[in-house]
Design a protein around this nucleic acid. Structure first.
Lengths: 327, 327
DNA sequence: ATGAAAGCGCTAACAT
DNA sequence: ATGTTAGCGCTTTCAT
């Protein structure tokens, strides 16, 4: 492995000079063009690659941010992370990803791992960092740039999704279609925020509400859809926790001989890109992952610059109904 | 930020001792239990976190692998990466991701970035590293652990997908269904490997073949599907480069009043998990991302241990037809 | 059972 | 226009 020193010896200067040249400080430091030339040539010839570890150790920063999230298997997250990687790069940083399989303990471990790796800030798509945790205290003590993407946790910078407007529009829309009763299909604890909005919206619009719990895996959603289809008091609409699950749910309905939206109107959540191309195109409660990511990164950058937390910062990203043909 | 030294002073020992304790070398190095105890306590009290940069600089390795790929937006990749992250962790490594937007130049840059960050090995889901490139030479000179996921590049360790068996089965299946003519829908250069298999399979089975180029974005696929639908010599089947695009293609067909599979039989590629839940469930040419990832990681581990490339290593992952209802 | 010292590759303040 | 020097936080060999 080639080091700055190797180049320095090869050219007959010191590592300092080499460092300056390779970091394009030649103007500022007044290095002669010929030296520059020779240094660059040597770097090329010797196959030089800078060492990130050494650089960040010396500089005390890594120019990278961390993102902890459950996983990439759900398209909404995949799309969000894809966007986050681009945006991070725009800000001259690298994104370190930690997928946790939605386990609280794994989320805290991921946080530790990212700290250890010296990231300059962390986005937590998780509710694991509560005021009771070591991590929460660390963030405060060190004023370590952190943004929570989820539920309020003390005074940490927070980006929340406001499911209320989308949910209200959804229920209202179902009402207008003539629906009398609607079921909420989803898993817990992921429904902690969504379900109360659902209940409230139903109450407001005088819609009969019911709850259809299921697990995350597709098979579980399918099972729930069958149960739903055969229930003697089958609702005439369903609002499903995620677009992916909504697609599966509709398939279950079809298999039981029901038609969407005529027998059951179906509304998904998140607006994943494939949703508009399935059959029938999926009506859904949309939210903008772009807004979430953009704001989170901006705050991270700001906090790293000011070297302090934006205590109490809060953004609430609205949702809205996108009407297609499934409801 | 707390360092080993801070702990050492606090406890009244040297950094060496602290290092040993915190790395659980107390047996081997015969550290007294009481010292251990005090060191650990201090680490806890002082909120100590090891510095990855310092550790890897001192040890000369990072315990991480890199994966460069086009992006996460396509579910097959998202699922593959999700799996890769888990498997990497199983092997006590971390996965550094670099998404390139499928641009050759970006792929080489990503490779450089990962080298700089000192990863212990790289998986390239890319054909950017040809024998003409600097990177290819570097890999050989340094015997740097690399696995190419794509097309043969000199004697670098290679994992390829063999599209032939799946394609043969697909065309045979269409034939049995009574199809006479089939169109290939896809974008280039991603079709470089698939399309020749398609042509060969059609020739073998005496099926009339045609080519329907499109771009990656959904809208472009939709446009192609309309063109396809209205063509005076419309094929009675279509094989599409990716499941995602197949879903969009079917939607386009529906919009033009055609039925799948009766008017046009549709076969996708890759077998993404949502495929079986759409309407009609998607017949597809499946391949195993698990096999690819598992083998790539095993080779990487082996190469890092032996400190040399597995020159000429090759694995060819087979494809197979999964028949559902779209064809 | 523990310490001293060198070094990993790079940066940056201060010379000259 | 370039060199000297002192770290950054950690591991490791060799002493004691």
């Amino acid at each position: 492995m080639t080091t700055l020193n190797d180049i320095a010896k090869h050219v007959g200067v010191t590592t300092t000079t080499v460092s300056w040249v390779l970091n394009n400080r030649q103007k500022e430091k007044r290095i002669s063009p010929s030296t520059c030339q020779r240094v660059r040539q040597a770097a090329q010839d010797l196959d030089y690659r800078p060492s990130f570890s050494a650089q960040s150790l010396a500089k005390g920063k890594t120019s990278s941010f961390g993102l902890v999230c459950g996983g990439l298997a759900y398209p909404f997250f995949a799309e969000m992370i894809d966007f986050a990687m681009h945006e991070t790069r725009q800000r001259n940083h690298h994104l370190l990803l930690a997928a946790t399989g939605w386990k609280l303990e794994a989320e805290l471990e991921a946080f530790e791992m990212l700290l250890t790796r010296g990231v300059d800030g962390i986005m937590m798509y998780s509710n694991a960092v509560t005021p009771q945790t070591d991590q929460y205290r660390y963030i405060h003590r060190q004023q370590f740039p952190t943004v929570i993407l989820g539920q309020k946790s003390g005074d940490l910078p927070l980006i929340q999704t406001d499911f209320m407007p989308g949910m209200m529009q959804a229920v209202e829309h179902l009402k207008k279609r003539g629906c009398r009763s609607v079921g909420y299909v989803g898993h817990w604890p992921a429904s902690r925020e969504k379900f109360p909005c659902f209940e409230q919206a139903c109450q407001y619009h005088g819609m009969q509400a019911s709850k259809w719990p299921c697990q995350t895996p597709h098979e579980s959603v399918l099972a729930t859809s069958r149960e739903f289809a055969h229930h003697r008091n089958r609702p005439d609409a369903a609002i499903i926790i995620a677009d992916n699950s909504a697609i599966v749910f509709m398939q279950g309905l079809f298999q039981e001989g029901l038609r969407v939206p005529d027998d059951v109107a179906v509304i998904g959540s998140d607006d994943i890109s494939i949703g508009q191309y399935i059959n029938p195109p999926l009506t859904t409660i949309a939210r903008s992952s772009e807004m979430i990511v953009t704001q989170a990164l901006d705050w991270l950058v700001e906090m790293t610059q000011q070297k302090k937390l934006l205590l109490g910062a809060e953004l609430c990203v609205p949702t809205r109904l996108v009407v297609r043909q499934s409801a």
